[in-house]
């Protein structure tokens, strides 16, 4: 029996997979947040960052496939564990069971399922930029000039995309669920991987709380600031009309705001 088989066939082995893939995804969430918070800077900052990522296709696709594998493993392990768990109690109690269990710990799978659906939406919304799901128009037509080159205008895409009320709401609901999912998952991954004793448990709990709150605040402040027109409203005002015009006519006719994006 090889090690992959041993891990996959054991309940604890699957918990290790849940913990390890969860840890990798949290590390990604922190990095992704750091990238996204650049939206509070000038448009060139995040556009330059996006251009930098796009200019390293090997790195970008390596990271994307790695993340996809982590998400996939996390989901498949969760589903197989849930099947094992529900099979372990064929007859339910008539009274409320799970005494002493926190709310988040009881609903990890439903919360995770909604977060997975959000990931699909988020990828369709900004990564694949499908016009059908954003309620604005064709994001791929948004371009700007950076260091003399024409690059995708990620700044305008984020601002225009998150100014839509229902889109903003989807993002905020997803962040709330992610916060609850991490509130339980982040400390539990240490438990599953065996990094816990009576000395370290309070510290792990504190770390988990601080990290999940920081991620909630960081990720929520972006859609809120954009929706309240605090960020980038002047910048996208003209692009918005251009985008509407562009979606009607086949020829793209973007109006670039002079002096704002080019240096």
């Amino acid at each position: 029996m090889n090690i992959v088989d041993r891990i996959w066939k054991s309940s604890l082995g699957k918990k290790y997979l849940m913990g390890l893939t969860g840890a990798a995804l949290v590390v990604f969430l922190i990095g992704h947040l750091a990238g996204n918070l650049q939206v509070f800077g000038p448009p060139e900052l995040i556009n330059g960052y996006a251009y930098f990522l796009k200019s390293k296709p090997g790195l970008l696709w390596g990271a994307r496939l790695g993340l996809l594998a982590c998400v996939g493993l996390h989901i498949v392990s969760a589903i197989t564990l849930a099947q094992l768990n529900s099979a372990a109690r064929p007859q339910a109690y008539a009274t409320n069971g799970a005494h002493g269990a926190s709310t988040a710990s009881k609903y990890m799978l439903p919360m995770g399922s909604i977060i997975a659906a959000f990931i699909v939406y988020h990828l369709a919304h900004f990564t694949a930029a499908l016009p059908a799901v954003n309620g604005v128009g064709d994001f791929t037509k948004l371009t700007t000039t950076l260091h003399g080159e024409t690059v995708p205008d990620v700044y305008a895409m984020m601002v225009l995309g998150l100014q839509v009320p229902w889109v903003c709401l989807i993002y905020l609901v997803a962040q709330g669920l992610l916060f609850m999912h991490l509130g339980h998952g982040l400390s539990s991954m240490f438990q599953s991987l065996g990094f816990r004793d009576h000395v370290w448990w309070p510290r792990i709990r504190l770390f988990a709380q601080v990290t999940s709150i920081a991620l909630l605040v960081g990720y929520s402040v972006i859609p809120i600031a954009i929706y309240l027109r605090v960020v980038g409203n002047d910048y996208v005002e003209k692009k918005k009309y251009a985008l509407k015009a562009a979606t009607k006519k086949p020829a793209p006719a973007f109006v670039t705001v002079p002096g704002k994006e080019a240096k």
């Binding site: 309940s11 768990n85 099979a87 372990a88 069971g97 005494h99 002493g100």
Partner: peptide, 21 residues
């Protein structure tokens, strides 16, 4: 642990119910 799995017990979700009761 392998015998526990064979017996058909579920996995741990770290809910803390066991410790509480």
């Amino acid at each position: 642990v392998d015998q526990m799995d064979k017996e058909g017990f579920g996995a741990c979700t770290v809910t803390g119910s066991c410790e509480a009761v």
